[in-house]
Each structure stands twice: as structure tokens, then as C-alpha cells.
Amino acid sequence: MTENIIISKYCRVVNNKIIVDGEVVFSSDSSLTFAEFVKEVYKNKAMVYPKFYKMDNLSKLGIIAAEFLSDEFISENIKGDEINIILMNSASSLDTDKNFQNTIKDKNNYFPSPSVFVYTLPNIVIGEICIKHKILGETAFFVSEKFDSEFIYNMVSDLIIHQGAKVVITGWVDFLDNEYTATLCVVKNIENSNNNNNEIAKFTIESLRRLF
């Protein structure tokens, strides 16, 4: 039943580069910090979303990666509740957890930051992507040492075959101490769609392993 499920597009964000379907579509000087890099991406993409600047690094990373895939899941034929998001990483929200700890570690300068605290869970990145793109389907975030292709394959397949998802955005979004990697892909059920689908690969465990 998975022969109609494809990976239609992927986006990788690494070393201040954005790679879509294997092609570098944006790059900045590698000496830029992540904050400087994403600000350039934001301007280059002409994003009008001031809330972006309030997000933690993990959410910015996920939002940027999803932005380059959005033409694959924003469609009048796909409802918000037919889009699911399943993400994974190894550092969880540790980068932001450490930032928050910095606001409370000194007894004499104890001012817990509410705006940092709200990002001290890794699944907030999913929430931010959902809010921006009006996605209403099932979501889950898993923490694992490495990308688990088999687990993701089984989960995404189930969502599409048994739960009615038309699209699943899945992948790896990891950020810690200015080191980051994001690889997101759009997995689609093309059973009842026309033949004009962009297709990177059939959705298999092997294709996920190659991608991640």
C-alpha cells in the first residue's frame, strides 16, 4: 500500500547553506553566526512574520526549513487537518534550556525569562510551523541519538495509510551551541492526485536512510 507514497521535496539547512532537492538555493558566509544567517534568510525570502525574531534557535531552524517546502504542502486540495508533522532530534530543547538556566542561575540576579521559558520543549518548533502554515493535523516530536529511519517510516506510513493524512512533513531538526542541522522532507500520498507530482524518491526506509 505504500507504492503511492512519495518523498516529494526535501530541504537541508546546514553550515549556513540551504539545500533543496540537492541544490544549494541559499548560502551565507560560513563565519556568520546562526542568528546572522537566519536573519539573511528571512530577508532573502521576504518573509513577513515578525514573530520569527522572538523564537528560539530550534524553532527558527524548523521554520526556515519548512518555508522552503511550503509550496509542496500549501494547496487548496490539502486541508490543514490533512497535514501531519513528525520530527526528531538528539539535543531536544537543550540549547534553549541552557539559555533559560542562565536567567535563573544567579540568586542575586534571578529573573526567569517567560519568553525563553515557553521554548523549553522541543515540540514547540512543530507548534510554530503549524501556526505559520495553519496546519491542524497530528504532530509528534521524538528525541533519539540518531535519525531512526525505520521508526519514522512506520509512523509516517501509518498516518498516511490508516489515519487519512495526505501529507506528512517529517525529518530532523537539531540545534545546540550554534551547531545545527535540519533536514525536512514532504511525504505525500499521491493515490488520488494528478500526475504532476514532484518526486524525489519513493517513500521507503532505504530512501530515508539515504536522505538522512
Binding site: F111, P112, S113, P114, S115, V118
Partner: peptide, 9 residues
């Protein structure tokens, strides 16, 4: 509302 909390801080 989070901004409000941040302004209080």
C-alpha cells in the same frame, strides 16, 4: 501575553 510577562520582568 508572554510579552506582558516579559515587560513585568
Amino acid at each position: 501575553s508572554i510579552d506582558a510577562l516579559e515587560l513585568i520582568v
